[in-house]
């Protein structure tokens, strides 16, 4: 390789490395701000590194698993409340609206809303988060005992 090319190779490589380092530093600095949501334990115990807890009234997103047996639906309207957990702490979510098809107990969801008190969120949006596993229903039933049941609505609820 002639010296001029070698110089260019070095220059371009250094620029690329410097840029990668800068990006890495920026992303590390932004770290938790890029997170799309809080987990229930982060809402109750604060973020892992900083220990900052969200304030009451703050608008935030929470992501966690719907606790089995915690879903309570109103008979007359679409209001629903359920508990979310990840590793232990439990946060209650209240929501008034149509839930996504994938919503059910044990499912991972992300809710956006305001913190009403330390452990309750009034959500205005609920999104379902699914995992990266794909399998036919028979295998899922045999392996995990999961059976997909669609949520049922009463005629009165659908009329709203």
């Amino acid at each position: 390789m002639n010296p001029r090319r070698k110089q260019r190779l070095l220059l371009v490589s250094i620029i690329l490395l410097g840029l990668a380092a800068t990006t890495a530093l920026i992303l590390t600095a932004l770290d938790e701000n890029i997170d799309y949501f809080y987990t229930p334990s982060e809402i109750i115990n604060g973020k892992n590194e900083t220990g900052i807890k969200p304030k009451v009234g703050q608008r935030l997103r929470i992501g966690g698993m719907v606790v089995e047996g915690s879903v309570k639906r109103s008979d007359v309207d679409l209001e629903v409340s359920f508990d979310l957990s990840d590793t232990g702490p439990i946060v209650t979510v209240i929501y008034d609206g149509i839930l996504p098809d994938l919503f059910r107990e044990g499912q991972g969801i992300i809710a956006q809303g305001h913190l009403v008190n330390a452990t309750t969120i009034k959500a205005f949006e609920v999104l379902a988060k699914h995992d990266e596993e794909y399998m036919p229903p028979e295998i899922a039933e045999a392996m995990k005992g999961i059976k997909h049941v669609k949520p049922e609505y009463t005629q009165q609820q659908l009329g709203n």
Partner: peptide
């Protein structure tokens, strides 16, 4: 950044199904 975004941060998008060193998390006939 695109590839590891789902591991580095909490995202709505789920993690990798096949582009990882583990066994793919998808049934064979799929």
């Amino acid at each position: 950044i695109i590839h590891y975004s789902v591991e580095w941060w909490n995202t709505l998008h789920q993690g990798a199904t096949i582009t990882k060193f583990d066994k793919p998390s998808i049934a064979g006939d799929m």
